[in-house]
């Protein structure tokens, strides 16, 4: 572990633009620093910033401070009642101890569990060493992504929370040296392409201050379903976040996002298109699942994820439209 300097930011204005890595709960960053994967020269502790509130907005939406802990957010009454998919996703992730530490802003920036990314003895990792290739291709790749991969990276985005936020069409608010801006979650995460080291739209010095969610659709039902080998404390093999509204047995509104299969939280416009206006039946759910996975590119060990993700989508849609 390299030495680093540490300072504690007193205000958001002071933090934004500071030269260094922000540290909230530290559940990803400290881990990766111990592994030598992250080697920040300066850590800026943002746990003292006043970003820990959850507020209902005048338009009926929700504003979630970047420092709101995962466990607090999951158990927040408004979240449980109106954004159930988010609460369920949070509670399916990690362990109670980790959720007590992990923050909303930090989880948006959670990094992959790819073992080759986390072990610096592998020099061929474009996420760490741009242009060096991908050690996971041809290696142990059972947990790797099947959507959005490239020759340079097949690492899975690990978060559950971000999958729910994607289905909820969240907006991420940041403050930086050039001022404030709002980024739709759809624009926030980058595909790896040839630059898997660039994971999101943040500019240097930009600090996530909060996340906003649109007003809940009163008639919608929400579901988060996570499939994995064991019952707890494991990343998803496949997960699905669904927000759906039906009337007269037909789907009038639907958002589908997938976890555990993509290089980023995976919004499936293809599945949504296959469902809109259609009867809420098993046949259409399966067709939507097929559409969502049409472009899947499995590796040597994770071909099963294609069928598993399809079944995950079908079950989530079935539950959300029941």
């Amino acid at each position: 572990m390299q030495s680093f300097s540490y300072s504690k930011a007193q205000t958001v204005d002071q933090a934004a633009g500071m030269d260094g890595r922000f540290i909230g709960g530290g559940t990803t960053l400290v881990d990766l620093m111990k592994q030598g994967v992250e080697t920040p020269k300066t850590l800026v502790d943002i746990t003292g910033l006043p970003l820990s509130s959850v507020e209902t907005l005048p338009d009926g939406g929700l504003k979630i401070g970047a420092m709101v802990r995962n466990s607090d957010l999951a158990h927040h009454e408004t979240v449980k009642a109106q954004y159930a998919v988010l609460s369920e996703a949070l509670l399916s992730g990690a362990s109670p101890q980790l959720r007590n530490m992990a923050t909303t802003g930090g989880n948006l920036l959670q990094r992959t569990r790819c073992p080759y990314f986390r072990d610096t003895s592998y020099t061929n990792c474009s996420k760490r060493n741009p242009g060096s290739g991908c050690a996971a291709i041809g290696g142990h790749n059972r947990m790797m992504a099947i959507l959005g991969t490239s020759e340079d990276c097949i690492a899975t985005h690990p978060s559950d929370m971000c999958v729910a936020l994607t289905a909820l069409e969240a907006t991420i608010h940041v403050q930086g040296p050039k001022g404030d801006r709002a980024i739709a979650i759809a624009d926030f995460y980058k595909l790896p392409g040839t630059t898997p080291n660039v994971e999101n739209a943040l500019e240097p010095g930009e600090l996530i201050t909060h996340v906003t969610l649109p007003a809940p659709r009163k008639a919608s039902k929400q579901v988060y379903l996570k499939l994995r080998d064991r019952a707890s404390y494991e990343f998803a093999l496949a997960s699905a976040a669904v927000v759906a509204e039906t009337s007269g047995g037909h789907i009038r509104f639907v958002r589908v996002a997938l976890g555990g299969v993509g290089t980023r939280p995976w919004r499936s416009h293809e599945a949504e298109a296959a469902l809109m206006g259609k009867p809420a039946t098993a046949t259409h759910f399966r067709a939507a699942a097929e559409a969502a996975l049409k472009e899947a590119k499995p590796q040597s060990e994770n071909g099963f994820k294609v069928e598993l993700a399809k079944r995950c989508i079908v079950r989530a849609l079935t539950t959300a439209t029941a």
């Binding site: 569990r113 073992p115 290696g139 142990h140 080998d229 064991r230 019952a231 707890s232 404390y233 494991e234």
Partner: peptide
């Protein structure tokens, strides 16, 4: 390659 308690799966209480 899965030499840690997150990647080497053992049964949890659940």
């Amino acid at each position: 390659i899965n030499g840690n308690l997150a990647d080497y799966l053992m049964a949890t209480c659940a």
